[in-house]
């Protein structure tokens, strides 16, 4: 469904992604784990077209999308929930959700999806007229995911959905991620620092270090891998 082939991305002179190759199959949840500054967020921003790669290819359903403007990439069904939620702070909850459906013309379907996300997160429904910036961190994450769902994505990129949230909320968010994947067959590309959690929900994983993909395997194998255990799962001696 999505394939990155030898992608190189720079911030000015800083070589942030070095020959990154990643493959995501239809319907799966994959995860990209790694330390702070490894290039995980840059990978997602390159895919979404915010920081276009300088070389390499990004194929979405067989079509090259590198160099396309972000709004065209979104219109193909590739959406992102960026790190830190990025709720529009002075838009109400329902306006934030409207923005998620910005490119859609099918008003009646949009209404249905709106009901669906309010059902998924009843808390948001209670707060629809409240400004996004006044929500708690967990509610903002729910809103961020809902906003992306309003676009009816076929591939959803999630950047650090657990960041800064209480463990109980994190658990809830991850249940929802699984639910979205199972119910609407949405493919999910999950970036996480919390490797343990990410590998439990994903089928396969990639490990990234200083801009390079250093390892890829099934989640079970990665969870059992000594190197991964030491570096990312906090189980080293």
């Amino acid at each position: 469904m999505l394939e990155l082939v030898n992608v190189n991305t720079y911030y000015g002179n800083i070589h942030a992604l070095k020959d990154v190759s990643i493959k995501v199959e239809q319907g799966e949840i994959i995860t990209l784990i790694g330390a702070n500054g490894a290039g995980k967020t840059t990978t997602l921003m390159s895919i979404s077209g915010i920081v276009p790669p300088r070389s390499g290819e990004i194929l979405f359903e067989g079509k090259p999308i590198q160099g396309m403007p972000p709004h065209e990439i979104v219109s193909m069904g590739l959406c992102q929930v960026p790190e830190g939620r990025r709720i529009f702070p002075h838009l109400t909850v329902s306006e934030n959700l409207d923005m998620g459906a910005f490119l859609r013309k099918d008003a009646s379907q949009v209404k249905q999806d709106l009901d669906y996300v309010y059902e998924l997160f009843p808390r948001l429904s209670e707060r629809r007229t409240q400004q996004g910036g006044t929500l708690s961190g967990g509610e903002q994450q729910m809103l961020a995911i809902s906003r992306a769902l309003m676009a009816r994505p076929r591939l959803l990129l999630l950047d650090e959905p657990s960041l800064g949230l209480a463990p109980i909320i994190v658990k809830q968010i991850f249940q929802i991620i699984r639910k979205i994947n199972e119910e609407s067959r949405t493919t999910i590309f999950l970036v996480e620092q919390n490797a343990n959690l990410a590998l439990q929900v994903a089928q396969r994983g990639y490990v990234m270090e200083t801009g390079k993909v250093t390892m890829t395997d099934t989640s079970d194998n990665l969870l059992a891998n000594e190197e991964v255990k030491n570096a990312y799962l906090g189980m080293g001696e």
Binding site: H71, Q80, P82, L91, E95, M99, R147, A151
Partner: peptide, 24 residues
Amino acid sequence: STTGKAMRATAQDRNMAMLVGVNV
């Protein structure tokens, strides 16, 4: 209006507006 909302969204967070499909 949709354009009005897109304007407010762009003013508040331009990159995020791009990520929901706004042609900034």
